[in-house]
Design a protein around this nucleic acid. Sequence first.
DNA 1: TAGATTGTTAATCGATTAACAATC
DNA 2: TAGATTGTTAATCGATTAACAATC
Lengths: 208, 208
Amino acid sequence: MEKQKISTAVINRLPAYLRLFSELEEKGVAHVSSNEISEMMGTTASQVRQDFSNFGGFGRQGYGYDVKYLCEQMQSILGLDKTYNLVIVGGGKIGQALANYGGYDKLGFYIKAVFDKEVWHVRVPSHIDVFDTEKLADYTAKNKIDIAIICTPKEVALETAKKIKDCGIKAIWNFASQEIKLDGVHVENVHLNESLFLLTYKINSEQN
Amino acid sequence: MEKQKISTAVINRLPAYLRLFSELEEKGVAHVSSNEISEMMGTTASQVRQDFSNFGGFGRQGYGYDVKYLCEQMQSILGLDKTYNLVIVGGGKIGQALANYGGYDKLGFYIKAVFDKEVWHVRVPSHIDVFDTEKLADYTAKNKIDIAIICTPKEVALETAKKIKDCGIKAIWNFASQEIKLDGVHVENVHLNESLFLLTYKINSEQN
DNA sequence: TAGATTGTTAATCGATTAACAATC
DNA sequence: TAGATTGTTAATCGATTAACAATC
């Protein structure tokens, strides 16, 4: 059972592929060539074919790739053919914004509850429960939760992550500006500030 | 005047360096070696020195790097020794969240106004103005704005970006899930969804 | 001074691009 | 069938790591 490790360079491109293919499907495009894909993505046809070959290849010689099939495959690879239950830990500005956003349901990401030290400060839609952070372990024992979103101040982000891990949650989406790295838990760090700083870097170095 | 192009691999690491050095400065650490930095960042000392040498090198042989100086340098390179005026275009959930967040002021990023088609829906702190999107050109003619944040629905993100460019704003921080690429404007695309999808990929491929 | 650690040059590794036989 | 386009192998390019003389 050799699971050939796929490079992060490739993996990081997968969501962009999915976005493109979804668009094409909406437009009713039936099939595309690697060359067309590369032009739309701003890369090379070689890279597109090389990327796909990591997953065994999705195409037919002389025809190209079936758009619908590409969509299905990308979704399946990214795990988007499943649904996920989420909790938010930290009900401040960012936590509330995510809870109130409401755009995740239709992607199969269900935000079930928000945990905060001061529940009375937290305003979220009525279908989302709000509990004291103390209750996290109890709650996750009774409810299957796949992903925890950390929206705490950065000072407590790391200890929060450890608690989440102890609750048996296997994945963390971290919005605190404190890098989190923890064995046995999948973590994706967002770091909005870093993105903004890259922009100011560009502004000041004036190299388009 | 040869401006040697610095690779994006290096640039993408700069904000993480800054974060580390700020932490060290807070803790009162006076100086560090490339080896210590590499351990804290999870890279190699070689890479650290190689990265710094892109900017001429910051250290002294036998001593290492002065933490305070490193902070200053990183901030200066990233343009964080300046202040910026921002407007938000699109006053929906995300736009309001950013306007209400309030954490950017102390970094020197001043959110001055929010533009939306339906101003009466937009609730933001009183020091931030709210205008109809029509007024964007007028406003930017009278006020120096450095960065526009796009928080519109993805369907209108691209045309919004073009309007912003026509107003003479030189940088866009894009939160719409529509990739924006426009000549003559610096763009940083956020794509929160992609980050979430990378997490579900990890969950499903079970390779830590 | 001797020890430590830099900045830089050289070697290695990995990712991207090019080329092409296989085949729809 | 002939043309188009794949999947894959080989070549190139760039980024990371190792090594070391320079020097604080």
